[in-house]
Amino acid sequence: MHFSPNSTKRKALPYVVVGGGVVAAAAIVGGFLAIPAVSGSTGAVASTTEEVAVVTERPALGAARDPLSQDELSYALHLATTDPALPENITSVDGSEAPQVLSVDVTTRDVDASDRFVDVVLYDYTSNRTFMQAVNLTAATVSGSSREGVQPPPSADEVDYAFRVFLADATASAGVRAEYTSVAGGELSSIDQLGVSGGAFSPDASTVGGDVCQVDRCVEMQFRVPGGGYLDTSSFVVDLSNRTVIGIQ
């Protein structure tokens, strides 16, 4: 992690934001998922990060509106991703044969329903469709719907992948890499060196370029040098469906 070079300033503040900001994205380094500290504020304690065990049998269920336990989340993922209604040739962001998991949340629909419903949102990079798997944990059933052109926020996993696609494109990333070097010194070689936000990009009347993102899954990113400023990322998006960098205006 990167810390503010100016430790004397901290004493003047009611509390300290270490690193001058927040590093929000998960980083996958060498295939291992490292979750950086989200906020450096003092006094708050996060739990340790635990790998969630695979759960294929219905665990003890919480009340319908409770947040998900680890076991519930894992069981919902199991039901959603093994649903036979999903396309057989479904692929994830790296092209491998598995659905891309975007989010897992207790549903906000029908709040007085007694059964425990979970929305598992998946993306299929083969068909470029978003699948919303409404999982009934109580009944162990899945009711799915899907649509092209619906682009939920990218998962941290996808942002990480998009960053790698971007960095691997020497031409497209030249400007950002040069700016990083001038601000922070050294070479930009990993997402772990930055605070990163990633958003779903859909073109609208105000954008020039990126029309392919009407259908493709595209990500726009903001980079912040911890302890420094933001880098200019306004001129490109990453098309994850094609694993290419697209210039936009």
Binding site: A26, I28, G31, L33, I35, V38, A44, V45, A46, S47, T48, T49, E50, E51, V52, P67, L68, Q70, L73, S74, L77, T81, S92, V93, D94, S96, E97, A98, P99, Q100, V101, V104, S155, A156, D157, D160
Partner: peptide, 25 residues
């Protein structure tokens, strides 16, 4: 009073899906 909220990260590489969770205030 601060209340804890769970965050989760699910990643898929080479067909293997891994999920990690933690809670933060």
């Amino acid at each position: 009073a601060l209340k804890d909220v769970a965050q989760s990260w699910t990643s898929t590489r080479e067909g293997v899906t891994t999920t990690r969770m933690r809670t933060i205030p």
